[in-house]
C-alpha cells in the first residue's frame, strides 16, 4: 500500500528512519524546490485530499509552511489552532481523534507541547499523521529541511561536522537533527552550558563542548537554537548578556569555524541573544532564508509520500498501532 521506498504510514520522528528513507524524502523535495521556483507552482496530486493542521502550540512559520505545501499539491487545507483551552491532554486528545475520524481527513499535521502526544493521536486516527513538533521530542520536518539546505549548499551530508549550539535541553529541533545527521554520516557536536544540555546526551552519538570556541573549531555547519526568554532569568542561565558573551554567535566566534562554514537557525531568532545580527544577515554565510524555502519543499515531499499509500477513502483504514 505504501511506497516501497518509504514504508511508513506516519512521519512521527527521524529516529526510526533509515538513511535510504531520508534520502528518498530529500530527493523528492529537490523536485519540489524547482516547482516552487517556477511560475506554475500548483500540482493536482492531492486533489480531493483533506489536510488538517492541528496546532496545540502557537506557530506561524511551520503552520504556514504546511498550509502552503498542501495547497501547492492541490489539497484542501484547514487550520485548527488550539489555544490550549478547548482541547486538553489525555482523554480529550482521544476525543479530538474521534472527531477528526468523523471528518474523513487524509493527513493530519500536529504540533503539541507534550512529548509523545502526536504519537498518541496517531494511534487513534484513521489518517496519516505528520509530527509538526512534539514537546522536546522530535520535529522531523525541521531536520529534513535543515538536511536539504545543507545538502544543496555542501553537496553532501556525509563527512560534515555540524555544531548544534544552545538550548539542547528543551529542543526537539536538536534531537531530530542529531538523529538525522548521525544516520547520514555527519558528525555532530553539541555546544552549550551544562544547564542546557540534557542528561547523558553524549550517549546520543555526539561530542559535547562547553566552550564554544573549542566546539566551533573546524566545523562546516553551525546550527543555532532559539533560547526561550523564560529560561534566561537565572533558572538555567543567569542573564542574556552572559549567555551572549559565552554562547552567542558573533563574528569573532564564527571565525573559528571553517572559512566556508554556514549558519543556520530554525527561527524565530532572538537577535543579540543567541545570534548577532551581523552574522545572521550575512548573505555569504547565513542559510536562514533558504531554510524557510526548503521547508515548503520538504513538507510537500512528506505529504506526497504519505498520501501515496492511502486508499481513495482514508476512513476505510483501521487505526494503525504503530508509526514511525
Amino acid at each position: 500500500m505504501t511506497d516501497a521506498r518509504f514504508p511508513h504510514r506516519h512521519l512521527l520522528g527521524i529516529q526510526a528512519l533509515g538513511p535510504s528513507e531520508i534520502t528518498t524524502l530529500l530527493d523528492l523535495a529537490e523536485g519540489y524546490v524547482e516547482q516552487n521556483r517556477s511560475n506554475d507552482k500548483r500540482k493536482n496530486l492531492l486533489r480531493g485530499r483533506t489536510v488538517i493542521n492541528l496546532f496545540f502550540e502557537n506557530s506561524t512559520r511551520t503552520r504556514t509552511s504546511f498550509e502552503l505545501a498542501g495547497k501547492r499539491l492541490g489539497a484542501d487545507v484547514i487550520n485548527m489552532q488550539s489555544a490550549g483551552s478547548s482541547v486538553q491532554k489525555g482523554e480529550t486528545l482521544i476525543d479530538t481523534a474521534m472527531t477528526l475520524n468523523a471528518m474523513h481527513l487524509d493527513v493530519l499535521v500536529v504540533r503539541h507541547p507534550d512529548s509523545g502526544a502526536v504519537k498518541l493521536l496517531s494511534e487513534k486516527v484513521n489518517c496519516a499523521v505528520i509530527n509538526g513538533g512534539d514537546g522536546s521530542h522530535e520535529h522531523p520536518t525541521q531536520a529534513l529541511l535543515d538536511a536539504l539546505t545543507i545538502r544543496r549548499r555542501k553537496g553532501k551530508l556525509s563527512g560534515l561536522t555540524v555544531a548544534i549550539c544552545g538550548d539542547v535541553l528543551h529542543s526537539r529541533v536538536a534531537r531530530s537533527n542529531i538523529y538525522l545527521l548521525n544516520a547520514m554520516g555527519a558528525s555532530v557536536r553539541l555546544i552549550g552550558p551544562r544547564t542546557l544540555l540534557p542528561s547523558e546526551v553524549g550517549r546520543l552519538g555526539v561530542e559535547v563542548f562547553h566552550d564554544m570556541r573549542k566546539g566551533l573549531d573546524g566545523v562546516d555547519v553551525i546550527m543555532m537554537l532559539r533560547i526561550q526568554n523564560e529560561r534566561m532569568r537565572g533558572n538555567f542561565i543567569p542573564s542574556i548578556r552572559e549567555y551572549f558573551h559565552f554562547f552567542g554567535l558573533d563574528r569573532e566566534k564564527l571565525a573559528l569555524a571553517k572559512p566556508d562554514a554556514v549558519i543556520m537557525h530554525p527561527g524565530p531568532m532572538n537577535r543579540g541573544v543567541e545570534i548577532d545580527s551581523d552574522v545572521a544577515d550575512d548573505v555569504e554565510r547565513s542559510l536562514i532564508r533558504e531554510q524557510v524555502e526548503m521547508g515548503v519543499a520538504v513538507r510537500m515531499a512528506c505529504l506526497d509520500l504519505l498520501t501515496r499509500g492511502l486508499p481513495c477513502s482514508a476512513s476505510d483504514l483501521p487505526p494503525s498501532q504503530g508509526g514511525v
Binding site: T195, R233, G234, N235, P238, S239, R241, E242, H245, F246
Partner: peptide, 15 residues
Amino acid sequence: ATKQVEGKELSEMGM
C-alpha cells in the same frame, strides 16, 4: 552563587 545571595537565580558566574 545566586543573585543577591537570595538563593533564587544563578549569578553571572562566567563573567
